[in-house]
Design a protein around this nucleic acid. Sequence first.
DNA 1: CCCATGTCCTGCCAGC
DNA 2: TGCTGGCAGGACATGG
Length: 274
Amino acid sequence: MPELPEVETIKRTLEPKVLELTVERVEIRRPDIICWPSAGEFAGLLPGRKVLSLQRRGKYLVWRLSGNYALIWHLGMTGRLVFSLPEAPQELHTHLILTFSGGQEVRFVDVRRFGRCYLGQSEKIWELAGLDKLGIEPLSEEFTPQKLKEILQGRRRSLKQLLLDQRYVSGLGNIYSDEALFEAGIHPLRQASELIDEDIVRLHSAIRKVVESGIVHGGTSIRDYVNGEGQQGNHQDYLMVYGRAGQPCVRCGTPVQRLKIGGRSSYFCPQCQV
DNA sequence: CCCATGTCCTGCCAGC
DNA sequence: TGCTGGCAGGACATGG
């Protein structure tokens, strides 16, 4: 669920809360959400470690811990990471609770349990969690129209599928890829390799624009997403096409269409996007 | 290389 | 009212 803007918002809201805190206790309710190491080792390795910084890479959230350790989270579809005080009522589907020395907690709640976490020495766990295979960060300086052109070159997949593939551009999911294609005026079924330079320039700036806008609005809360303080985002109020099948396009009034592409619902305006 | 499909889970909603 | 099928923001494996 959480795409780049949601994970970035969680990073920004959670970091000031947990910075410099030391993990004291770990309560594991669902061991299967821990991908590495074993639940027992996880519970043994974490206490005593201090949170040095948080960072985001694609849709992953990384906690840098003392002793050159990293705790890496992927929130799947419905995962939440929320800072709480111990007296706050516990939500259903709370699978993991980290308690810090001052008594504050971070709780991992995940209805569908697609989320997971990894703990280990930074470099090793980075690879183990698959972060070394992620594509370019869309907000980085290296992400230029030229770079996007290289990515699209020779690829005959549809743009929608390519944008969802984390090996090329990382952080886009179903919502922001649809919004970016709408913003660029490009049909989601267009083949990546057939874009001309002007399309690529538009797509490049559209990706940046929708991702930045998502962050400014604190992420998109359709059902489950909340930030590190448990608050909903506002970007659902600014979506142009996602989830708007049958409703008039905000630009031309043509009903927004929904189409299954690669098994995912895709929303687009058949008039504005060609 | 690309594609479609199935899988992991639970909850919600529309339709009957 | 209750049941059922389809769908949901992700990612991976599999077989063609």
